[in-house]
Design a protein around this nucleic acid. Structure first.
Lengths: 195, 195
DNA sequence: TGACTTTTTTATTGATCGATAAATAATGTT
DNA sequence: AACATTATTTATCGATCAATAAAAAAGTCA
């Protein structure tokens, strides 16, 4: 066994509690006091286990992204571009309004605009959002190769369009929109697909 | 003339400077120190003229909403629902990427998620976003009455869909999207309209 | 000129921010 | 049992937050 006094809390469980706080309050809006209270530990335990507030957020973000990737992979595996998009949007609508966690998306609400201190986090979140858009674009390019979409399709624009709807739904969920509201949005998107 | 020492700065001009800071940093991310520096005044002058940070933000918000309403009225006056939507989205794309002001939308970036202290501002911004969606919905209802849209159209869902795209574009603009990128998104929306 | 009013500058206020120092407690090792 | 190591609790650090107290400055009016 490891030397010294054993840790009295489960780091993975504490990380999960921190993630919930970050989802609800964002990076800047979450104070160490609130995080430690939710995690059931004192500040020195937080810093010993996670390094800093920023490192804690990055670890919470990694977990969040992992969850999203699990469902995103399934969606991208769908046989047609249309089905890929619908699965992505329906899954996002469900996740954004999951009653088990605060409404909205950490990639959007985590730090959309912020003070100078949170700038690195803001950029990190922006990169993650772009990464999701790029993943979809690659899938749409494959669809063109497979003859599923016309060769003349503007895949970059189309991928950005879907990413935009996804991020807009995050804003909606952060407000007053319900799960049914978001699925009505997806209905509107699918009626027009692909134009 | 008014009694006492005259004010050495123009309140409207100072409010404009404050608005720019709030657009770039959001409500929580904007400190009094940064605001006063941008406004060219000292804290006591800010509090004497505007009351508090929250009141200052609300006044800046009122101006921002006023600007948006000017262009929104023009868009809603378009003869067809299709043209209304395209004007709204094109105008939003342009405004979000106006080189004269920070990219993005104050209604989205001002306080999407925040600490307890900013909660009233978050709710106010949410109400303003809903108000824009409602205005569009009423216009789409008129379009049904005029036979411009089928009677079976889900106007609430359609209005929310357009609001979602608009808000998603705000997130895109806050990231790396250019004006051309956003117009490509609008292209995708219009290709599918109305489904 | 001097009283009156309001804004200015200067210097702080108490509260809260993220982060830690110091002392105590709990384990494994010798 | 005594030591080494790590985590805990308690108390607090300096910095920054929004907001002000106090005094000097700039104007009107008698």
């Amino acid at each position: 066994m490891a030397l010294g006094r054993p840790r009295a809390f489960d780091t993975e469980e504490a990380l999960g509690k921190a993630l919930v706080v970050f989802q609800r309050k964002g990076y800047e809006g979450s104070s160490i006091a609130e995080l430690t209270e939710a995690m059931g530990i004192n500040p020195p335990s937080l810093y010993a286990a996670f390094g800093s507030k920023e490192e804690l957020f990055r670890k919470a973000l990694a977990r969040y992204v992992g969850i999203r990737k699990d469902f995103s992979r399934d969606a991208l595996d769908a046989p047609t571009a249309r089905e890929v998009v619908e699965r992505l949007l329906r899954g996002t609508a469900d996740q954004l309004t999951d009653p088990q966690s605060p409404p909205g998306c950490l990639l959007v609400q985590g730090a959309l605009s912020c003070g100078d201190a949170a700038e690195p986090i803001k950029k990190e979140l922006c990169l993650r959002r772009v990464a999701e858009e790029v993943a979809l674009r690659h899938r749409l390019e494959r669809a063109i190769e497979e003859g599923d979409l016309p060769k003349t399709t503007d895949v970059a624009g189309l991928a950005r369009y879907i990413a935009t709807v996804s991020q807009g739904m995050a804003v909606q969920a952060a407000g007053t929109a319900t799960r049914a509201d978001l699925h009505a949005v997806v209905d509107a998107v699918m009626r027009g697909w692909p134009g």
